[in-house]
């Protein structure tokens, strides 16, 4: 198990290096010089040159790559071209919104999807199954911002249980902050839980057809006991894969939801940075998201091994 974990860790490190090179290269070939963009078209060439040197744009590409990576390792993400504030600080602020939101949404999605998927699988072909499958069909088809608007309409405007948007900050109290993230988290979670419930159901149905489920029944387990004791853990592998992918999506992909609920999250930050050619911010946020995705995949790999002993044995 330890060797397995170390191997996954090594592959994590390699992925990170490759990803950083790709991100750097892509951003470098993107047209537009940040310095001339910031100063406008009427700027004097020597002013642009001065700014370029101040931003560290006048050295070789290899040097800039190493400076960037070295800085990140030390926790120094550089200074935003447009806001003139440390990028690290900006990201950290936004992270305090996006990360809790993603975790919140993921928790909701799992809490909804697991029972729904298991229920549907246990009643395959019966009305209960069809109702759940119909609901998930709707969940997959309807975009999350529409859910968001409906939630605002019902719970913020009509019932006035929640505010329609904005984020007070964690300093204002944990519950208040959590409350303001609730509607966005539900809006994010609904389509995700629909997908997850479908995966859970089909994965369980595959397992229910396995020979060992028949063996379990031949021992005297009831249908339900066999499902819980032998089916669930075997069905988890594809489900874990989807959960890992969903977390990555939720962390970065909340741009529209953040826009709808006016939340100062990572999605909005990256959107603004791209519009303003704030390359250093874009690079750093993308790198951070890549890191998060790879880290989540690493955790999912470990979870696989915890679930399935055959993976532990494989070196």
């Amino acid at each position: 198990m330890l060797r397995y974990a170390l191997k996954r860790l090594l592959s994590l490190a390699i992925s990170l290096v490759v990803a950083s090179l790709v991100i750097f290269a892509v951003i470098e070939v993107a047209p537009g010089d940040p310095a001339s963009f910031m100063l406008g078209i009427n700027a004097q060439p020597d002013t642009v040159a001065a700014l370029r040197s101040e931003l560290g744009l006048d050295v070789s590409k290899a040097e800039r790559y190493l400076n960037w990576i070295g800085g990140m390792v030390r926790g120094d993400f550089g200074t935003s071209y447009t806001y003139r504030t440390p990028v690290g600080q900006m990201i950290a602020d936004r992270m305090w919104v996006s990360l809790p939101l993603a975790l919140y949404a993921l928790a909701l999605s799992t809490i909804i999807a697991f029972p729904a998927g298991i229920y549907a699988a246990a009643r395959r072909g019966k009305p209960g199954d069809m109702a759940v499958m119909g609901a998930t069909q709707l969940g997959v088809a309807v975009p999350n911002f529409w859910f968001a608007m409906m939630l605002v309409l019902v719970f913020a405007i009509n019932l006035r249980w929640f505010s329609a948007g904005g984020f007070p900050g964690w300093d204002e109290g944990f519950w208040l902050a959590l409350k303001s993230l609730t509607l966005p988290a539900i809006a994010l979670a609904l389509p995700q839980s629909a997908i997850l419930a479908r995966v859970m159901r089909s994965s369980l149905l595959d397992i229910l057809g396995e020979d060992f489920m028949r063996s379990a029944r031949a021992k005297g387990l009831s249908r339900r006991q066999a499902l819980w004791r032998h089916g669930l853990r075997n069905a988890l592998i594809p489900v874990l894969t989807i959960i890992g992918m969903q977390f990555a999506f939720l962390l970065a992909g909340g741009i529209i939801i953040e826009q709808v609920f006016f939340l100062p999250g990572l999605g909005r930050l990256i959107f603004q940075a791209i519009s303003a050619r704030d390359l250093i911010v874009v690079e750093s946020v993308v790198m951070l998201l890549v890191f998060a995705v790879i880290l989540v995949n690493f955790i999912v790999d470990l979870a696989y091994a915890a679930v399935d002993p055959r993976l532990r044995a494989r070196t």
């Binding site: 020979d211 060992f212 028949r214 063996s215 031949a218 021992k219 075997n234 002993p309």
Partner: peptide
């Protein structure tokens, strides 16, 4: 089942729960 009557199946490779 399992107490008064037991059953052995054809395919031993898949008749046991792998986890």
């Amino acid at each position: 089942r399992g107490k008064d009557m037991g059953m052995v199946f054809q395919e031993p490779m898949t008749a046991l729960n792998p986890v």
